[in-house]
Computed example of a mutant assay.
Amino acid sequence: MIIEEIKANLEDLDAHEVKQRHIEKVYLESANLVKRIQRVKTDHGNEIGIRLKNPKDLAAGDILFMDEKNLIVIDVLTDDLLIIQPRSIYEMGTIAHQLGNRHLPAQFEGDEMLVQYDYLVEELLQELKIPYKREDRKVKQAFRHIGHSHD
């Protein structure tokens, strides 16, 4: 089976619609969410080719296949993350500036800044006394570097 477009996302469907279907999952590392062409295997052992026509990143909950009885859905494996929890706008600005200088991609969930684990960043957070924790957590989208060069 070759998938060329995302049908919808689980968040777009009514809960009853989802419950009445058998769900098969494709587990991806967050870094693979940006790949438009890849071969994957479902948790039931079925191989699927993904060749997206549109340049769109995959996301957790994306539906690759749907019929009256079945769904094939993207799920994301956990990432080793630093969850940064600044206490003030000063701490937020300080760490954002430091991470920006390193071109480190970040995501935000509520009041938390999420970055992929890096021991140098952990040492920096300890040095700056900015609260953080390290945990394995699923992210909904890939960590994406923003194209930029210093001219």
Rank of each mutant, 00 (worst) to 15 (best):
E17K: 14
L10H: 00
L104D: 09
E4G: 14
K56Y: 14
E11T: 04
A8I: 01
T94W: 11
V40A: 02
D75L: 07
D118A: 10
M1V: 15
E112A: 12
I50A: 00
L82A: 08
R102F: 12
I95P: 01
H150Y: 14
S30L: 02
T42L: 06
S149M: 13
I83Q: 12
Y117N: 05
I6M: 03
R137N: 10
D151V: 06
L13H: 02
I146A: 12
I6C: 00
I84Y: 03
E91F: 11
H44R: 09
G49K: 10
L77Y: 15
E68F: 05
K35G: 03
E17C: 11
Y117L: 06
H145A: 10
L124G: 04
Y90H: 08
A142W: 00
L104E: 13
G49P: 05
L64R: 01
M113R: 06
A15Y: 07
A106I: 09
Q141V: 01
G49F: 08
I84F: 05
A60E: 03
A15C: 05
K35Q: 12
R39C: 07
H97N: 11
D136A: 14
V121W: 03
D12A: 05
G61Y: 04
H97W: 15
M1G: 15
D79P: 09
P86H: 04
A60D: 00
G45C: 10
T94L: 15
Q20H: 07
M113S: 10
K69W: 04
Q85T: 09
H16I: 06
D57V: 03
N9T: 01
D136C: 11
L52I: 01
G147F: 08
L64S: 00
Y117G: 05
V40T: 02
E5I: 05
K7L: 13
Q126A: 06
D75N: 15
N9L: 02
T42P: 07
P105T: 02
S149I: 09
I3S: 00
L124K: 14
I6H: 02
D80E: 11
A96K: 11
Y90G: 07
G110D: 09
I23Y: 01
Q20L: 13
S88D: 06
R87P: 03
M92V: 06
K25C: 10
D79G: 02
K35E: 10
H150R: 14
H150K: 11
I146S: 12
Y90T: 14
T78A: 13
A106H: 13
K7C: 04
P131M: 06
K129G: 06
E11Q: 12
T78C: 10
E17Q: 15
D12T: 02
D14V: 03
L99E: 03
G49L: 12
K138M: 07
K138W: 06
L10P: 00
N54M: 10
A15Q: 15
V115E: 04
I48F: 15
R21G: 05
H148M: 13
